[in-house]
Computed example of a mutant assay.
Amino acid sequence: MLLDSDAESDVAYELCQVVGRSILPYRSSDDDQHYGTAFFFQGGDDPVGESLLTAADLVGTPGGELGLRTSVTEPAGVAPAAVSEVGIVPGWARFPGDGVAVLPTAGLHRLAGDGGWRWRVQPVPAGIAAGPEVVARLGADAGSAFVLAHGVREDGSRPLEVAIERVVRDGDAVRITTELPQGYVGAPVFAVQLDSSGELSPYCLGLVLPGVGEHPVATFDRIRAVLPATPRDI
């Protein structure tokens, strides 16, 4: 669905309020220095269903780290500026065929507890993860898309940003029609559609994959397919 610019601004603001604290900056190992974004997803009411999601291409080598904004941890001033993925168990599970990497968050919560702090996040809830019927309503006509990501500024800072772009579907493929800035790979992509009462409802279509000139989107049907196979604590 294509919105006018005022409506797009309203949706972007609302998404930041609702899921802004789900999103973290990611940096891969010192050797390749790839920058991207990861986000928390809550697959159900059970806390075991919480995962961190990003693009598989970002996490192929050890030594990556997650940046921490002050708004995603408590109490203030206790958590570090970043946490290394080394030693987080279970670690990332990569599914290159789907473009997705999944990190069950049990290890992240243990890491926080050992350090005397807690996560204060707003996971993207399962209720707004786009199902096949939402994806099927996308078409060749461009619709409004909202990408919440941590870009990379010239001074190296990683602020939370919202890019308002266009999304289309061509057969089974969903894509963002422009090339996104550095740091946006792995970020969640949102769209809006009318619900049964005629109100606008937001949906998380999936996450941004690497691309040149445009970006494929790993939609939630692909993400859901790999979540049950993700290693968990026993």
Score class of each variant (00 low, 15 high):
residue 2 L to P: 01
residue 4 D to L: 02
residue 7 A to M: 11
residue 11 V to P: 02
residue 13 Y to R: 15
residue 13 Y to W: 12
residue 14 E to I: 01
residue 15 L to T: 15
residue 18 V to P: 00
residue 20 G to M: 10
residue 21 R to Q: 06
residue 27 R to I: 00
residue 29 S to F: 07
residue 30 D to G: 09
residue 31 D to R: 15
residue 32 D to L: 10
residue 32 D to T: 15
residue 35 Y to D: 15
residue 40 F to H: 11
residue 41 F to K: 00
residue 48 V to T: 12
residue 49 G to C: 05
residue 50 E to Y: 04
residue 53 L to A: 03
residue 55 A to F: 02
residue 61 T to R: 14
residue 63 G to M: 04
residue 64 G to M: 04
residue 66 L to Y: 15
residue 68 L to S: 10
residue 71 S to N: 10
residue 73 T to Y: 00
residue 76 A to T: 09
residue 78 V to N: 02
residue 79 A to C: 05
residue 80 P to T: 13
residue 81 A to K: 10
residue 83 V to K: 13
residue 87 G to L: 00
residue 88 I to T: 07
residue 90 P to M: 06
residue 90 P to R: 07
residue 93 A to S: 13
residue 93 A to T: 13
residue 97 G to Y: 00
residue 99 G to S: 06
residue 104 P to L: 05
residue 106 A to N: 05
residue 109 H to R: 14
residue 110 R to S: 12
residue 111 L to E: 09
residue 115 G to W: 07
residue 122 Q to F: 11
residue 123 P to E: 11
residue 124 V to L: 15
residue 126 A to L: 10
residue 130 A to S: 12
residue 138 L to E: 03
residue 139 G to N: 03
residue 141 D to E: 13
residue 147 V to F: 06
residue 148 L to Q: 09
residue 148 L to T: 13
residue 149 A to Y: 15
residue 151 G to L: 12
residue 157 S to M: 06
residue 158 R to W: 07
residue 160 L to R: 09
residue 168 V to H: 04
residue 170 D to C: 00
residue 170 D to L: 08
residue 176 I to W: 02
residue 178 T to I: 12
residue 182 Q to N: 07
residue 184 Y to P: 00
residue 186 G to A: 08
residue 187 A to G: 05
residue 189 V to Q: 05
residue 190 F to I: 05
residue 191 A to E: 04
residue 193 Q to G: 11
residue 193 Q to R: 14
residue 193 Q to H: 13
residue 194 L to K: 14
residue 197 S to L: 11
residue 198 G to C: 02
residue 200 L to W: 07
residue 202 P to R: 04
residue 205 L to W: 03
residue 207 L to Y: 02
residue 214 E to N: 06
residue 216 P to C: 11
residue 218 A to Q: 07
residue 219 T to S: 03
residue 221 D to H: 06
residue 223 I to M: 03
residue 225 A to K: 14
residue 226 V to I: 14
residue 226 V to G: 04
residue 226 V to T: 13
residue 226 V to L: 09
